[in-house]
Design a protein around this nucleic acid. Structure first.
Lengths: 283, 283
DNA sequence: TCGGATTACGTGCACCGTAATGATC
DNA sequence: GATCATTACGGTGCACGTAATCCGA
């Protein structure tokens, strides 16, 4: 068995061209590297270099060995990476959600139920969330519809309604309710992490422009100080229930059928047992 | 980068079940192995074992790592083997021949032309000799016909005629020449390393039985002291020219067209330059 | 003369083995 | 008490770095 660092040093030499350069790159002395290469040849029982007294070059054996060695090193590296990844995955619960609003509560719930676990969350507008759940990219998902396929277990956990926030001076500000198509063509402030709502807005209001905001704070600021209608800007009932902010904005419900959403929490049936505490909490 | 001997030790532990047994197998002390495993966990940053104070077992990470490690070790082993093989191949010239008779001279020719090289020879009746030459199983081949395909370079080097050796009392012993079919049905002594002649005899004399002899000496002995007809038993002209043995056997030429053979020496065109000294010798 | 490889040589520390300790059956 | 793992400790070999040497452009 030949230690892998010898191959590593050989590859360094192949990349650098000289022992001195390679030694520097490896942070060892030149003689040490020289001896290592001699030892490598010795242990292989194969000459790897042409020695012209003041110049060391790889011969055919050497070139071949470098190829193999690169391969071996990559293999070991990837192996180590996968082991670490495997371990990490076991101590993290990965949640994919179509909406940002439920995340904080959901995370604190998970944290209290699964002590020591890392909870990682991702908000995505991707309609293939269920597939990613199946592929184990996520262990839990929050979806805006019940996932089909009998490999999933799911439970409705919350419902939400979409509102639009308008400035009082807006021509539609006195409506009791609005369809999205009524608003089509206007320019909106839109939170970028809005999840699946994003797709709905763009589909129903194809002529509108959306000014994406990464930061909720910035969005709030802009909402207060501009005449743009805004999504979600605390316009969904879930958020409204919780933080009744002071604002002069008019909040108008959207009448489209799709503006009424029930969120489902889902996991693979095979992991149902693991997550019963979560589901019990919502039942 | 993690040294490979740590993985080797881990695999040993997995095979043996306890540190003590593994340590014995590895010819190191138990504490040394214990520390190695701790270091492995440390360098991976991943726990590999369940420690129950007096019993060490692999956890899930450990099982996975063992799988990967076995793989890596096999890969390294095979890599080293291939490097050595590659080197060895460069210092040996491998010759495949359809006949044994030319081998001694041919080997001594090669030995004198390519000092330091190992000459390895194989006599084969396999009709796919040319293919094996193309596939680099051999660098040189001695064939009984010119190989076709313009990837080969070849030169006729010798011709040979097949004779049969009969005891004087044999009913056909006074013939001037014989066709193989005249001999069909009889039982022959046959040298097992006869190469392609073997196939010819069996094809032309399907009803005959052949008593194969591995040793030329034994064959000679049997020829002298039995009434069986024999091949080749010094019956081909090439051999006859060189060693005119004392024998009371009658040597009769075979009249079949195929009994007259020209041998070709061949190599890949791409290796022609390397072997010009050989071909020059025969030209 | 400088840059690069190898050889010579002294040293430190990494790793080993022995011994002791702890734990479990 | 036997077996097994871990910790403690002291010794040693080995690989390292520095220095010297050799060689070639």
């Amino acid at each position: 068995m030949i230690e892998i660092h010898l191959f590593e040093q050989l590859v360094a030499f192949a990349s650098c061209g000289t022992l001195s350069a390679a030694a520097e790159q490896l942070h060892i002395s030149q003689p040490a590297l020289s001896r290592s290469m001699q030892r490598l040849e010795d242990e292989l029982g194969v000459k790897l270099f042409d020695r012209q007294k003041s110049r060391l070059t790889l011969n055919e054996n050497g070139e071949l060995t470098v190829q193999y060695a690169r391969n071996l090193l990559m293999q070991e590296e990837s192996m180590i990476e996968q082991i670490r990844e495997y371990d990490r995955k076991k101590r993290t619960i990965s949640v994919g959600s179509c909406t940002p609003v439920l995340i904080p509560d959901f995370v604190s719930l998970l944290s209290s139920l699964y002590e020591g676990m890392t909870i990682s969350t991702e908000v995505t507008g991707d309609p293939h969330l269920a597939e990613q759940l199946r592929e184990n990219k996520y262990q839990l998902a929050i979806l805006h519809e019940k996932p089909d396929g009998n490999i999933f277990y799911s439970l409705p956990i919350e419902s939400e309604h979409l509102y639009v926030s308008l400035p009082p001076v807006h021509p539609l500000a006195d409506a009791d309710g609005l369809y999205l198509k009524d608003l089509d063509g206007q320019t909106f402030l839109l939170y970028s992490q809005i999840g699946f709502w994003d797709g709905l807005c763009r589909r129903k209001m194809p002529s509108s422009r959306f000014l994406l905001q990464q930061e909720m704070d910035v969005l709030g600021e802009l909402v207060e100080n501009s005449a743009f209608p805004a999504f979600p800007a605390f316009p969904t009932d879930y958020v409204m229930k919780r933080s009744r902010q002071e604002t002069d904005r008019v909040i108008i419900p959207i009448l489209d059928e799709e503006a009424n959403v029930t969120y489902y929490c889902a996991c693979l049936k095979s992991e149902k047992a693991r997550f019963t505490p979560v589901f019990r909490h919502f039942r």
